[in-house]
Amino acid sequence: MSVDTATVAKIASLARIKVSEAEIEAMVPELNGILAWVEQLGEVDTSQVEPMTAVIPNTLRLRDDVIDADPLTGGDKRDAVLANAPAAEHGFFGVPKVIE
């Protein structure tokens, strides 16, 4: 499988990265080189193999339903949450107006 300029433009749009036409042109051979290289995985017979789900055998722990049990993972910290916001107003994050 290889990508063309239209595909690269589409991926870049999906990834929300603005790219110029010149950048797309440059990326096409680069990405194709990488894709051609990773496609050697197709050689491996994996018909009897399950995809890896956990790197190290381990089970998912579930936490207790307690509010703010650990201040690091709890809420009630609006100032901390907004501290680095490019546009914080009246306790909200501001973004360009969205029309739904």
């Binding site: 339903d65 307690v66 509010i67 993972t73 009630d76 609006r78 949450v81 907004l82 009246h90």
Partner: peptide, 24 residues
């Protein structure tokens, strides 16, 4: 539930904006 699916912040309805928001 008292707290959110993946964080400890509260779920109550009608709180002050962004007051029930964890870093997560």
């Amino acid at each position: 539930s008292n707290s959110k699916l993946f964080s400890g912040s509260a779920t109550a309805f009608g709180a002050e904006p962004n007051s029930q928001v964890s870093l997560i």
